[in-house]
Design a protein around this nucleic acid. Structure first.
Lengths: 331, 331
DNA sequence: CTGAAAGCGCTTACAG
DNA sequence: CTGAAAGCGCTTACAG
């Protein structure tokens, strides 16, 4: 790899002049400039980002830490983050933790040590202390979807309203025995949806049927298992909310296997819709969060925080997006 | 952020001693060591990776460039890459290009300039020159899935066999008029599958029905549109191969809308199965490549290349994995 | 308009 | 066993 020094030698000037010419950071005589450009081109010069970053203390890069990418809303959010970051001249580095706190810890440590100016995280919730440390050390942090730490900005959907409205929707469609397939309650999104569900069920005078399972939270099996449990334990069940699409697929499979017709006998709605819901044979009604927009907003927020002068960093804020009902064939 | 110097000052030793102690790179008196550890802990010291990398010329990080993550095989391959890299002490930085050559170019340039020791890429095929340049500049490169540049190692599935076997399978199931939904033929995987399809169809004395569309290649609409075209143009169609799962979903939708029953009237098989195929209401028969294993292998290869001494870098090699038929309900 | 020098935070021969 | 020094590749006051 050619370095500044190589270019300087070839162009017969000092490295500082080369730096100034290439960065347009002060006037350089046009002739000199031309010689420098020619030399840089001839050598195929590319600045070493590590050295630049070390020197400048800025790398125009944000890190994104997500629990999973495969069949999850995060891959959609990511597209928004990347777009937002790109618009503002930042690049994006993604770390996928598979919801493993140990992996997450390693990712965060790696990112903090000079890789990025800011971090957007949908965390496992098990590294709160580390996240706070990182923020305290001057790296901008924004939480997305999974809000965990107070005092740190976050972008979320209105999970409670989401659960609440879904119940009302099914009720209005005629359901009177509605189940909820959930997830780990130490995570805000699942907890919020349960609360909304409870509130609605209570208000409507219905029974509460909340079902969890030991399978991996974001999985087909989780939905399948819960659906079977609900069917066994709840005579008259006629509607079910699945926390995420992939659970919904499992639920649909369980219903199909028992010969139960959707939506005639049981209606199914997913509380975290992403594109896949519309592609199914019986397409799935979903509450959808504006994933793309939320990602873009997160990028804007974290970059805003990065670029704010040290004496007036913005206060942490929480932006809540409404979810919207997308009606399809499963209800 | 505390630096080596801060630790040195607090422990009353030279920075070089601190470096040696913390890295266990030569003997340091136990007492000194203890003082240093205490100091590092007290200050919450974390080494600056940029500085380390600049100094050592190694960063123990590989970059992964993929065309998309949402609903694609790449998110599954990624899990394998990450596991393989982690096992060997490397971290992974992911760049998602959305199959846009311009974005890809920027990603590659960013990665080459000091961010990573090696790159695993499933490319757009439009930055071949740049990829070769990067490799020539000493950064290890491995291509995955999409083999584009000769002279650069690659990990692929046997696309031709995949297309060939799928046709034979459908034939043996009774199909006599088999269509293929394809993708961009400048990409090796699509081209290979078409070749296999053609060969099989010819051998069996069947008609060739290859269909493309103008929609985004890896999309539901692509499959939907192609399926409708095939149905309109091919009386007696009784089997169809979709290049990727998501096209298969579109095809199934098109069939369902016309009241055509799967698999009784038309059988559907996907040539790039990933987990979603098994989760559908009518689960989809697929040719599956060992995505996880391929990812892990790619990580091993690129790291092997990184760590080989400069005088005996391994020669580029191409590893081909067999795809396996997973029979489900759509055939 | 340009050069010489210092320094970002680290590692690593070289002495001792 | 430890310190002083050089240097990775860059940028940026400071002179001139």
């Amino acid at each position: 790899m050619a370095t500044l020094k190589d270019v300087a030698r070839l162009a017969c000037v000092d490295v500082s002049t080369v730096s100034r010419a290439l960065n347009n950071t002060s006037y350089v005589h046009p002739d000199t400039k031309e010689r420098i450009y020619a030399a840089a081109k001839e050598l195929g010069y590319h600045p070493n980002i590590m050295a630049q970053a070390l020197r400048q203390g800025k790398r125009h890069t944000i890190g994104v830490v997500v629990p999973r990418l495969h069949l999850a809303i995060f891959s959609e959010i990511l597209q928004g983050i990347e777009l937002g970051a790109r618009k503002l001249g930042y690049a994006t580095l993604i770390c996928n933790t598979e919801d493993d706190p140990t992996v997450e810890r390693d990712c965060l440590n790696r990112l903090r040590n000079g890789f990025v100016d800011g971090i957007i995280i949908a965390g496992t919730g098990r590294n709160g202390r580390l996240v706070r440390d990182i923020r305290a050390s001057g790296i901008a942090v924004v939480q997305i979807v999974r809000q965990q730490e107070g005092g740190i900005s976050s972008i979320v959907a209105d999970y409670e309203a989401c659960g609440y409205e879904a119940v009302y929707y099914l009720y209005q469609k005629g359901c009177r025995e509605i189940g909820l397939i959930g997830g780990s309650l130490h995570l805000a999104p699942y907890r919020g949806r349960l609360e909304g569900y409870r509130k609605a069920v209570k208000t409507l005078g219905l029974r509460e049927n909340f079902q969890q399972s030991n399978y991996l939270m974001n999985s087909f099996e989780y939905g399948y298992e819960c659906m079977n449990q609900l069917l066994d334990n709840t005579p008259g069940l006629d509607g079910v909310l699945a926390a995420v699409d992939i659970q919904g697929l499992g639920a649909i499979r369980a219903l199909t296997e028992r010969g139960i017709r959707i939506p005639e006998q049981v209606k199914v709605i997913s509380l975290t819709g992403h594109a896949v819901g519309g592609m199914l044979e019986t397409s799935m009604t979903s509450m959808e969060m504006p994933a793309h927009e939320m990602g873009e907003k997160a990028a804007e927020m974290v970059i805003g925080e990065i670029e704010a002068p040290a004496d007036k960093k913005p206060s942490p804020q929480c932006v809540t997006f409404a979810t919207v009902l997308v009606e399809r064939e499963s209800t």
